[in-house]
Protein backbone atom coordinates (compact mmCIF):
# COMPACT_ATOMS: atom_id res chain seq x y z
CA UNK A 1 0.00 0.00 0.00
CA UNK A 2 1.35 3.45 -0.89
CA UNK A 3 2.16 6.02 1.78
CA UNK A 4 -0.41 8.35 0.18
CA UNK A 5 -3.18 5.74 0.56
CA UNK A 6 -2.05 5.00 4.12
CA UNK A 7 -2.33 8.70 4.97
CA UNK A 8 -5.80 9.03 3.47
CA UNK A 9 -7.02 6.04 5.50
CA UNK A 10 -5.37 7.34 8.67
CA UNK A 11 -6.88 10.81 8.30
CA UNK A 12 -10.37 9.42 7.67
CA UNK A 13 -10.12 7.02 10.60
CA UNK A 14 -8.35 9.18 13.18
CA UNK A 15 -10.22 12.39 12.40
CA UNK A 16 -13.51 10.45 12.02
CA UNK A 17 -14.38 12.00 8.66
CA UNK A 18 -17.86 10.71 7.76
CA UNK A 19 -18.98 9.72 4.27
CA UNK A 20 -15.52 10.12 2.70
CA UNK A 21 -13.55 7.23 1.17
CA UNK A 22 -9.79 7.30 0.45
CA UNK A 23 -10.49 7.45 -3.29
CA UNK A 24 -12.50 10.65 -2.76
CA UNK A 25 -9.34 12.48 -1.68
CA UNK A 26 -7.02 13.53 -4.53
CA UNK A 27 -3.28 13.54 -3.80
CA UNK A 28 -3.11 17.25 -4.54
CA UNK A 29 -6.47 18.30 -3.03
CA UNK A 30 -6.28 20.88 -0.23
CA UNK A 31 -6.70 19.25 3.19
CA UNK A 32 -7.89 22.46 4.85
CA UNK A 33 -10.53 25.02 3.91
CA UNK A 34 -12.51 24.23 0.80
CA UNK A 35 -10.73 20.94 0.14
CA UNK A 36 -11.33 18.20 2.70
CA UNK A 37 -12.54 20.84 5.15
CA UNK A 38 -10.15 20.22 8.02
CA UNK A 39 -9.78 22.98 10.63
CA UNK A 40 -7.21 24.23 13.14
CA UNK A 41 -8.03 21.53 15.71
CA UNK A 42 -7.47 18.90 13.01
CA UNK A 43 -4.04 20.46 12.40
CA UNK A 44 -3.11 19.70 16.01
CA UNK A 45 -4.49 16.17 15.59
CA UNK A 46 -2.34 15.75 12.46
CA UNK A 47 0.74 16.63 14.53
CA UNK A 48 -0.29 13.90 16.99
CA UNK A 49 -0.86 11.42 14.12
CA UNK A 50 2.62 12.13 12.70
CA UNK A 51 4.18 11.51 16.10
CA UNK A 52 2.14 8.37 16.80
CA UNK A 53 2.48 6.66 13.44
CA UNK A 54 5.71 8.05 11.92
CA UNK A 55 7.67 9.17 15.01
CA UNK A 56 7.99 12.69 13.60
CA UNK A 57 7.99 15.78 15.85
CA UNK A 58 6.54 18.60 13.76
CA UNK A 59 6.80 21.71 15.91
CA UNK A 60 7.70 24.37 13.32
CA UNK A 61 4.41 25.96 12.20
CA UNK A 62 5.81 27.17 8.87
CA UNK A 63 6.95 23.65 7.99
CA UNK A 64 3.59 22.31 9.17
CA UNK A 65 1.70 24.75 6.96
CA UNK A 66 3.60 23.48 3.91
CA UNK A 67 3.39 19.82 4.89
CA UNK A 68 -0.35 19.97 5.56
CA UNK A 69 -1.19 21.51 2.18
CA UNK A 70 -2.12 18.17 0.58
CA UNK A 71 -1.63 14.42 0.85
CA UNK A 72 1.22 14.71 -1.66
CA UNK A 73 3.00 17.36 0.45
CA UNK A 74 2.46 15.40 3.64
CA UNK A 75 3.79 12.18 2.13
CA UNK A 76 6.86 14.05 0.86
CA UNK A 77 7.48 15.51 4.31
CA UNK A 78 7.22 12.06 5.91
CA UNK A 79 9.60 10.51 3.34
CA UNK A 80 12.13 13.20 4.16
CA UNK A 81 11.84 13.05 7.92
CA UNK A 82 10.71 9.64 9.10
CA UNK A 83 12.51 6.38 9.56
CA UNK A 84 9.11 4.64 9.87
CA UNK A 85 7.23 4.47 6.58
Amino acid sequence: MSLELDLKKLIIEELKIEDVEPEDIGDEDALFGEGLGLDSLDAVELVVILKKHYKIDLEDMEKARAAFASIKALAAYIRENSEVQ
Binding site: L41, E45, V47, V48, K51, K52, D57, E59
Partner: peptide, 14 residues
Protein backbone atom coordinates in the same frame (compact mmCIF):
# COMPACT_ATOMS: atom_id res chain seq x y z
CA UNK B 1 -1.77 6.59 27.69
CA UNK B 2 -0.87 8.78 24.71
CA UNK B 3 1.06 11.18 26.95
CA UNK B 4 2.87 8.27 28.61
CA UNK B 5 3.73 6.69 25.24
CA UNK B 6 4.62 9.80 23.18
CA UNK B 7 5.01 12.70 25.64
CA UNK B 8 3.14 16.02 25.49
CA UNK B 9 3.08 16.01 21.70
CA UNK B 10 1.00 12.81 21.79
CA UNK B 11 -1.82 14.53 23.70
CA UNK B 12 -4.83 14.75 21.41
CA UNK B 13 -6.85 17.94 21.99
CA UNK B 14 -10.01 16.05 21.03
Amino acid sequence: DNIIDDGDIGASPT
